[in-house]
C-alpha cells in the first residue's frame, strides 16, 4: 500500500518530502498511470499537516508533469511527459549525482561498487 511518511525538524521541508515520496512511488510502480492521489484534505488530515503544504506539493508535481489535476475529480498520476530539455534534465541529474558520488567516496566505496548498487536499485524498481 502507498503510504507517505513525514518527519519534522529535518533538512527537507514537508512539501518536498511529499513530492519526493510520490515521485519515487511512481518511479517504483507503486502508483501507476491513472491512479488517483489522496485528496488534499484527506492527506493533510492523515499526515497532520497544513492542507496548503499538500496543495503546494501537488502543484509542484503537476508542474513537473507527473501528475494531472482533473477539475472536480482530484489528482491523478499521468503519463509522464518530458517537459524539460535534454540539457535541463542532464543538469538536474548531475545535481543529484554529485552528492551521491561524494558520499560514496567518503564511505569508501569504489566506482564499480557504486554502479553495482545503482543497478540493484534499478532492478528493484522494475521488478515490482
Amino acid at each position: 500500500m502507498f503510504r507517505i511518511q513525514i518527519t519534522t525538524g529535518g533538512k527537507v521541508p514537508i512539501y518536498r518530502q511529499v513530492v519526493d515520496q510520490i515521485r519515487s512511488a511512481i518511479a517504483g510502480g507503486v502508483l501507476a498511470v491513472g491512479d488517483p492521489l489522496p485528496s488534499v484534505r484527506g492527506l493533510a488530515s492523515e499526515l497532520v499537516v497544513n492542507p496548503n503544504t499538500i496543495a503546494k506539493a501537488y502543484s509542484s508535481l503537476v508542474a513537473d508533469g507527473v501528475v494531472e489535476s482533473q477539475q472536480g475529480r482530484g489528482y491523478f498520476v499521468t503519463q509522464h511527459r518530458q517537459i524539460y530539455t535534454k540539457r535541463e534534465r542532464k543538469r538536474r541529474l548531475e545535481e543529484t549525482i554529485a552528492p551521491l558520488v561524494a558520499e560514496a567516496v567518503t564511505l569508501g566505496f569504489g566506482e564499480d561498487e557504486l554502479i553495482a548498487e545503482i543497478r540493484k536499485r534499478f532492478a528493484k524498481m522494475t521488478n515490482r
Binding site: I6, T8, G9, I14, V48, V49, N50, N52
Partner: peptide, 10 residues
C-alpha cells in the same frame, strides 16, 4: 513547539 509549527502553520 517548533515541530508542530512546521506541520500546521502557514
Amino acid at each position: 513547539l517548533l515541530d508542530d509549527v512546521e506541520r500546521i502553520a502557514d
